[in-house]
Amino acid sequence: MSSQSLGKTFTAGLWDSNPVLRLLLGMCPTLAVTAAMKPALTMGLSVIFVLVCSNIVVSLMRNLLKPHLRILMFTLTIATFVTIADLYLKAFLPDMSAALGPYIPLIIVNCIIIGRAEACASKSGVLVSIVDALGMGAGFTLALCLLATIRELLATGKLFETPVMPSWFTPWAGMGMPVGAFVTLGLILALVSVITNKSKS
């Protein structure tokens, strides 16, 4: 496969089929962990790790898969790597693990990962699968960080827990609550649609 089409596979995840902004997959972590940058980034990196590992494994075993048992195999693979990611956070980033609570184990049911296993890894070679996982994971992480930047900035006046807003700024606590997640995500999705519609016409 040429490097040009590999590049295309990568950038597809960033914009054209960005899992959050264009395909609306993985909405649960998008809404739940984006109140601040740190948890959003941790979630994004965990998903990249799980996505890359599961895509590699699925791609390697793609010729051995029995069609009616494939979903079972995907889930088994994903669950293994999610558990490893969860243990890693518990051991080395205990504060982040406490803050993210059940959302790390919930990556198992994140449809981005099983979606990529089904749509890409089970049909393509290892290299393509890795590039695809990196692109999709980066797209997911960027979308989460975009949301988290806006929400953390408005809800607390901080970024990465460092105060950045001028002193006269009154924090909008509502942006840190679920309502802030829905409103911000809705506005971002609208903006993305406007941009894609413009570039099409």
Binding site: L65, K66, L69, L72, M73, T77
Partner: peptide, 11 residues
């Protein structure tokens, strides 16, 4: 199901 069993053990 051999793949499933083997990978269960490996994982």
């Amino acid at each position: 199901s051999w793949l499933l069993m083997v990978s269960s053990v490996v994982f």
